[in-house]
Design a protein around this nucleic acid. Structure first.
Lengths: 231, 231
DNA sequence: TCTATTAATTGATATTTGTCATCGAGATAC
DNA sequence: GTATCTCGATGACAAATATCAATTAATAGA
């Protein structure tokens, strides 16, 4: 974190992304020769929904939010993006546009990989293609689950889901900095920011979590999971 | 439609599915040798969510609904399945289970293709792999759009979406038999069946559609589109 | 044809969720 | 240091949506 300007190789950008390891040395070099790096300050847009999907990308370090810009300026936050995960919306293979916007939450370094290279590797390396299919399928499955959760759970269940997402997927810790504002938490769980505030307060009043404006601590995970499951 | 018991070759099952055409003759034969056919009566389950995803499939003829069995027995209807479209949930590449249930609405003939064959073709035929990626990406994109629509539109907009889906995607005609019950229309648009009834009535009262219990006719498509877009 | 069952419809009502107005605290800009 | 801004918080209220109960219409079997 301290060495913001330090150059990070593609090995670091793709660290944790297993598909990369399935490439031959030459293919890995091909990727290396066609990557570009850039750093972003908090709040800056890394890729913009609707613009040409010319690159796949990875974060070298930092955190970002990916979100769809929907109707009437309403956003829908899909996920928190971290290093090791491929960022490539389905639009790249359909309408050749980025499907969602990705914006930096913390300071971020991103590696951009030319999408044509990607496309070529899919054609020539079957194992890589299969791995990419797994990646896309995995995201698709999560989207479907998210859709069911959003449409079938009531607000407390949806907010519980989000809190568990942060503890289990993002920070892997039951105590964490809440990097999203209440407004953004609402964009993630499809509710008004005032409702987020109220439900967080309810959860705190019933000792399920501790919460101040910037920190969350899960005190009774069992109960939080039950709230999530009950809907 | 009349010859329900007539044997239909894989060429017919895959008619309209462009990925199949990208296979070599040998590969197409390999598929042909590993396919199974079955017919289903209205209401019968063709594949069941959660069971092992051992096959990809196509409809030879007929119509089916694909739906996710969600919380508390609440279903979410994802789409109406017709011939020419690959049916292969993302789970096949993730947890090796069917992600959703598919049930026949009309009499249906289905072709089952061994998923291992599929997997093998992805590895050995890069163009096929790319085509499958396009297919999966396309579905993923539609799911994302659906999620935004479901979460950001009010009931009239969602129902308008469904009515337009039937006219534009399913029947390609502004007048059609409503093959889903009000209950099912609600499962598709995430609302109670009573609300479906009321909004259909509103739309009819304002001369946007004609509707009796089994038939829909779009009278003022412009207006219906506006209702869909306005939310 | 008659009956049993399921689907559609309707009105009344309860619940959920969103909006508006307001205020205070903390951060930022000048 | 002060003005400005955004965010968090809260209460009152309005709008959207679900549920319940009852009735009618349609359909499938016997």
């Amino acid at each position: 974190m301290s060495a913001v300007n330090q150059k990070i190789g593609i090995e670091d950008c793709t660290y944790g992304w297993k598909s990369f390891k399935l490439l031959t040395k030459e293919e890995q070099n091909l990727v290396n020769e066609n990557r570009y790096e850039a750093t972003f300050k908090p709040g800056e847009t890394i890729i913009k929904q609707g613009s040409p999907a010319s690159n796949a990308l990875f974060l070298g370090y930092g955190m970002a939010k990916s979100y769809i810009e929907g109707l009437n300026g309403k956003n829908f936050i899909m996920s928190i993006v971290q290093p090791g995960r491929l960022i490539l919306g389905p639009g790249a293979y359909v309408d050749f546009r980025y499907t969602y916007t990705v914006a930096a939450i913390t300071a971020v370094q991103a590696c951009f990989i030319d999408f044509d290279i990607f496309r070529q590797l899919v054609r020539t390396n079957g194992i890589f293609a299969e791995s990419l299919l797994e990646d896309v399928s995995n995201k698709s499955l999560m989207t479907l689950r998210q859709m069911v959760n959003l449409s079938q759970k009531k607000m407390p269940g949806r907010l519980a889901d989000a809190l568990l997402y942060f503890s289990d997927e993002v920070f892997k810790n039951d105590e964490y900095e809440m990097i999203l504002t209440r407004q953004e938490l609402g964009e993630m769980t499809n509710m008004a920011k005032e409702c987020v505030v109220r439900i967080l307060k309810d959860l705190e009043d019933s000792s399920v979590i501790y919460s101040d404006s910037s920190k969350i601590k899960i005190l009774d995970k069992e109960r939080l999971i039950r709230i999530s499951e009950k809907g």
